[in-house]
Nucleic acid binder design. Structure first.
Length: 484
DNA sequence: AACTGTGGCAACCGCCAAAGT
DNA sequence: TACTTTGGCGGTTGCCACAGT
């Protein structure tokens, strides 16, 4: 809703949501009365409904109706003025922020505490680093995202002077696009071709490598799923800071012990030697693998610009029990995987012949990488554990645990984060419900409008047609939302 | 000149868990 | 124990600038 609500005191967020749509439509209607706006109409409608379809969900709409803290009082919203910045800066410099809810009053600001906190953290904080992100920072963000998913705050802790908001914006506006241009799915960090293949053939039997595509964005990337699972199941109290949200989704793996992922991440960060400012908390653990994931530096052209592979690569001198969990993928392999060399007869041949991501973690074989280097397929929970793919060597505590795991967990569920009767399942239901209800009920009659224009109507007739259509659309929109 | 499309950014949103009462 | 408040988080959105039509 954002700044649309500036100066308003909506009864509920839900009403505001409808208000905003209605207001946009009314603006369009007024504009169309000034003069016919065929193109503008199409563009704005498409824009409006793209936003609607991308952001709205039934659950989100149902959850609306709560008062934001800012509604309780008439508080300023929107951009901060220099005067406000100065007041906030002076107050915090002198007294510290203390309880944020008291800050605006003490600082003489007509803002809510949350707004003050956000302004301080994202803009006024003296230790913030200004300017564009360096290549090293971008690379690190990508690597961390592969591990942590969209846990921006966790990622931000590894980039001193950068805020989670900043990183999130960079990811959404820039890095995502770059990755897609390179044929990498930004959600899963896998080749797009494989992701598309997985969507086309969702039935999973033995082809474990092609199943983890359509990942819930909230659950992280390819590694995010794994790390998510692990972090959810960790009992170690020191892991809690890493977990952040999503604590609800616990699994039967809770009895397993894993070392803190913080340490693992520090290992990752420490690989970026140029980022000297990145902190490394505590002693370097005796980790089963070092430099777990090193992207071939596509953006930085560390490979001389001729290597198109953009994938995890193993560190050449790990000397660890498991040199890498991500096998090296040659450029030819990647080009195959991205579908460039597909046979017309068998569009999936490239995928099927290529095994990704998980190298057999047999210590003896992994260090030598003597095979084709393409890794192995995930066979099952137990086989994964037996193979010690997890860096946490004590993750396979005993046979009983494995049996327990086999009974309760299936890899497709693990990788998708869609355990039976989980919120994810409900989300799917909500999504389908939304698609059925919202899309069907609220769609503009674009075709009808086009038809009207194509009927050589006079301008005044055009306006009447547009007006009528808007009236109908507004009514339908109202009904749709009332029915939710 | 007016309009459109797009990207970047700042800020707001609701949700959640912890802390407080 | 139940309820409220607070702080933190990720997702979303509106504004603005700018290039293109």
């Amino acid at each position: 809703m954002g700044k649309f609500m500036n100066g308003q005191t909506p009864h509920t967020s839900r009403n505001t949501y409808i208000d905003r749509i209605m207001r946009n439509l009314m603006q369009l209607r007024l504009a169309s009365r000034r003069r016919p706006m065929k193109k503008a109409y199409h563009s704005r409608c498409n824009h409006l409904y793209r936003r609607l379809q991308s952001s709205a969900s039934v659950s989100a709409l149902l959850s609306m109706g709560r008062h934001s803290c800012c509604y309780k009082q008439k508080l300023r919203k929107g951009l901060w003025s220099p005067e406000e910045d100065e007041k906030l800066m002076n107050h915090i410099t002198k007294h510290g922020h203390g309880c944020w809810s008291t800050v605006p009053k003490l600082a003489g600001l007509q803002r809510c505490g949350k707004s003050c906190r956000l302004r301080w953290l994202n803009y006024l904080r003296p230790d913030l680093k200004r300017g564009a992100f360096s290549q090293e920072e971008e690379d690190l963000i990508i690597e961390l995202h592969a591990v942590l998913g969209n846990r921006w705050s966790q990622i931000a802790t590894r980039l001193p002077g950068r805020t989670d908001n900043e990183i999130k914006n960079l990811w959404n506006s820039s890095i995502k696009k770059k990755l897609r241009q390179k044929g990498i799915d930004p959600n899963t960090h896998k080749p797009l071709a494989e992701v598309e293949h997985s969507k086309a053939a969702p039935t999973i039997s033995t082809e474990r490598t092609s199943e983890s595509s359509d990942v819930d964005p909230s659950s992280g990337g390819a590694l995010g799923n794994l790390s998510h699972l692990l972090s959810e199941t960790a009992q170690s109290p020191e892991l809690l800071p890493v977990l952040g949200k999503h604590r609800k989704e616990t699994t039967s793996l809770a009895h397993l012990r894993v070392p803190p992922k913080e340490l693992f991440l520090d290992q990752l960060v420490s690989g970026h030697e140029n980022l000297t400012s990145c902190r490394s908390t505590g002693p370097i653990p005796n980790f089963p693998f070092q430099q777990l994931m090193c992207y071939n530096n596509e953006f930085g052209n560390k490979n001389g610009g001729s290597n198109n592979s953009f994938w995890f690569n193993q560190n050449e001198s790990s000397g660890s029990t498991i040199s890498t969990v991500m096998p090296p993928v040659s450029p030819s392999t990647l080009s195959t995987s991205t579908g460039l060399n597909r046979s017309p007869d068998n569009p999936h041949s490239g995928i099927q012949n290529t095994q990704f991501y998980w190298e057999t973690a047999n210590p003896s074989s992994s260090s030598s990488s003597g095979s084709n280097g393409l890794g192995f397929e995930l066979q099952s929970t137990s086989s994964l554990l037996e193979s010690s793919v997890f860096p946490w060597t004590d993750l396979t505590p005993d046979k009983n645990s494995q049996i327990h795991l086999e009974e309760e967990l299936k890899w497709p569920d693990l990788l998708h984060g869609t355990f039976t009767d989980t919120p994810a399942t409900m989300q799917n239901l909500s999504q389908s419900l939304y698609e059925d209800v919202i899309k069907a009920e609220s769609q503009f009659n674009i075709e009808g409008l086009c038809a009207a224009w194509s009927q050589n109507l006079q301008p005044q007739q055009h306006l009447q047609v547009v007006s009528d259509l808007y009236d109908k659309d507004l009514q339908r929109m109202s009904l749709s939302f009332e029915n939710i």
